[in-house]
Amino acid sequence: MQVSAEVLPGDIVKIKVNGELSIFYIDPFESVVQKYIVDGKSKFIFDFRDVTYIDSMGIGLLSIAGNSASQKGHKIAVIVTNPKVKYTLNVSRLHDVMVIVETEEDALKVFEGN
């Protein structure tokens, strides 16, 4: 699994993940998420277009980011196109803190006006 991160205009953190996001490979993803939460960031885009599999540990970290964002009035945006990964996220019960989209353009719209 590979993880990369960049801060976009508007103080939006985009975290891109490639491969399998499971407990076996969770450490680099967890480190990046925790770093930006500790830094006080609250606008997150997770680019999961190249994620092939996600388990409850990956979703648990999304819930941490989502709950942190919600404390500042935001939701996290997750870009996902793999149907199975999307279905897994849809049944994860994170809808109060997460918006699922298919493009980066739609992800950026989540933060418009904030």
Partner: peptide, 17 residues
Amino acid sequence: EVNNRSFRGRGLVMILT
């Protein structure tokens, strides 16, 4: 019981799904 505030327990929901 599992909802957006839960960090754990989600795995069992996934199995049931």
